[in-house]
Design a protein around this nucleic acid. Structure first.
Lengths: 134, 134
DNA sequence: CTAGGACCTAGACCGGGGTCTAGGTCAACT
DNA sequence: AGTTGACCTAGACCCCGGTCTAGGTCCTAG
């Protein structure tokens, strides 16, 4: 199954611009094939790769890291241990990020609780008013 | 307790540049007080505010939203319901973001698992090699 | 023949969130 | 008096990750 860039854009949710960018920036393991007219021809495999890329991006992996990963894939099977390494590292970062968000969430939730009670009770005390206003 | 900008930077983990930026951009509810020489004088209250700001930022709230919140605080106690609204919205977004990260994490974890087993077994099949390489 | 649509490249532009520089003021030590 | 160090403003700069434009090619349908 071969797809044009527009179809890939639809399937992956990326823009055609972004797809071209990814290729230019070396984020595809190997340059995308072209037809006689110079147009990109994507395979299922490419689409799968892009699918993973979007997950990587959505989880905060910078393009530079995706590029590294793509380089490893390009360099063949002997780099598999390194790829594993890279993925593990990212995995840890995501876990850490989730933990961070959960901490923030507690802080936010506590403010929400306080504001909630307060507003429900029809504002007796002013909470978090600027001191200059009092 | 009154603090200079440098001390606030230390206590909040922000840079002095960032602190000035936040003020310029209207992220403080009201301009920071100044001493005779025009230097910023922060109160405990300001520091607490900044503490919340860093949590908001760390959880992905854009500066524009912090500005909105600051505006509400500036406008006094009658905006408390709106503030609650804003916080609740952000809270939801954080929850959603965590969910998204968890989804990504599953995908990543599955790749890690596959690579892990694979590498452990000493690469029999090549997984995720670029088709052009075979 | 012409128009439309999908594609191409190179490169400009954008928004977010800072960070840093230049040039200056002020207060305190030595 | 001189130097240091913390601070001030205005504005330039930077990185990231795209997005958009200009100008061109190619194919297909009317």
């Amino acid at each position: 199954m071969e797809l044009g860039i527009g179809q890939v854009a639809e399937r992956t949710g990326m823009s055609v611009h972004a797809l071209r960018l990814y290729e230019r920036e070396g984020l595809m393991p190997g340059p995308v094939r072209r037809d006689a007219g110079g147009r990109r021809v994507y395979t299922e495999w490419d689409v799968e790769w892009l699918h993973y890329c979007t997950k990587f991006r959505a989880s905060g992996m910078p393009l530079a890291t995706i590029r590294k990963f793509a380089d490893l894939v390009r360099r063949g099977p002997e780099t598999e241990a390194e790829r594993l390494e890279l993925l593990r590292e990212h995995q840890e970062q995501v876990v850490a990020r989730i933990a961070e968000l959960n901490e923030c969430l507690e802080v936010i939730a506590s403010k929400v609780r306080v504001y909630g009670e307060h507003v429900a009770r029809g504002s007796a005390a002013e909470l978090w008013s600027h001191p200059a206003a009092t």
